[in-house]
Computed example of a mutant assay.
Amino acid sequence: MSTEIVRRETHGKVALLRLALENKLNPLTDELIDALVAALQHVESEPDVHATVLTGSEKAFAAGADIVAMSKLDYQTAFCEEYIGRGWDRIRGLRKPIIAAVGGYALGGGCELAMMCDIVIAASDAVFGQPEVKLGIVPGAGGTQRLPRAAGKSTAMLACLTGESMSAQEALLCGLVSKVVPRDGLIDEAMRIGEQVARHSLPVLLAIKESVNRSFESSLSEGLLFERRLFHAGFSLVDQKEGMAAFLERRCPDFVNR
């Protein structure tokens, strides 16, 4: 599945999605978010695709929300139409792993979109930030919620209260990204990680993502119990039997995703 503004390639068990607006800053318009959600949901429906790499243009992963559209909103319209929430919240419910390959600008909504992904790989020229305060508004797609969880309270306060951006190396040091690579190796590295993820059993990947996400929404004791129940449930899988047999027999496992 491919649209003009979200282009898709499939490499084995990994889907590569590119945000591809004519505006290379990739402002996150409703049209773009709807197309992205449709593409990601299509991946969810494909049993042979286990992971997605999401990237942008040479200039930007996404440089922010659609300021032109936002400038025309009033409170009643934003609230009643659930601006941002109605499309963005569907990304949160996706179960397969998503890897963000971030090059160039990832500002405002672009930074928030990257944080909605499960792994973030940054090019050395990547720039992250939450500049909404400069527009006289609060971040609206998770900037005040996901950034403290990813990078800590002080870093999140600095970013959100000043609107200052951070470099890829700064993002790495605070834990916002997993690793930084040269720009010309960004997609190759993200795809390598995607392929490393996708070779594993799909039901186990779904369970791991769900369990890690649960850690941010529950107490430690409840999170540990949730993890333990998923661990116990794993003994019902054919892939658990195969994985452990392959380990004992010193061979690569042949997972069947059940």
Rank of each mutant, 00 (worst) to 15 (best):
P27A: 03
N26H: 01
K24I: 06
A38M: 04
P47G: 04
H42M: 05
E46Y: 01
E31Y: 08
N26R: 09
A20Y: 03
V14T: 14
D74M: 00
E22C: 08
M70W: 14
E44Q: 04
T3E: 09
L40C: 13
A62F: 03
A65K: 10
V43Q: 12
T3D: 01
E9C: 08
Q76K: 15
R18A: 11
A51T: 13
Q76C: 05
K72S: 13
Y75T: 13
V37N: 11
H42Y: 01
E22D: 10
E9N: 04
S2L: 11
V14W: 08
T29G: 04
A65T: 09
A15V: 12
A15E: 11
I5A: 07
A20S: 13
I67Q: 14
L16C: 12
T10D: 12
A35M: 03
L54M: 07
A39H: 06
E31D: 15
S45D: 12
L36I: 00
L32V: 04
E46P: 07
L36S: 09
K24R: 14
T3V: 06
Q76L: 14
S45V: 02
D30K: 10
E22T: 05
K24G: 01
D30C: 03
G12L: 06
F61Y: 13
Y75E: 13
T10N: 05
R7V: 10
S57F: 10
A63L: 09
P47K: 07
T29N: 05
G56R: 07
E9M: 10
L25V: 03
L54T: 00
A20G: 02
Q41C: 02
H50F: 00
V43K: 06
L32Y: 11
L54I: 06
L17N: 11
L40D: 09
T29D: 05
P47R: 02
A60T: 11
G56S: 07
V37T: 05
S71Y: 08
E44N: 00
S2Q: 13
D48V: 01
V14F: 06
S57C: 01
D66G: 13
L36C: 03
R18E: 05
H42W: 10
S2N: 12
T10I: 15
A51G: 08
E31L: 07
A51Q: 07
V43W: 01
T3A: 05
E58D: 14
L32D: 05
P27V: 04
V53H: 10
M70Y: 14
V6N: 12
G64C: 03
N26A: 04
E58S: 14
G12E: 09
A35Y: 01
K72P: 02
S71C: 06
V37S: 03
V37A: 11
H11R: 15
K59L: 15
V43I: 14
Y75H: 14
S71E: 01
A15K: 02
D34L: 11
V14E: 07
G64K: 00
V49M: 12
T10K: 08
L32G: 02
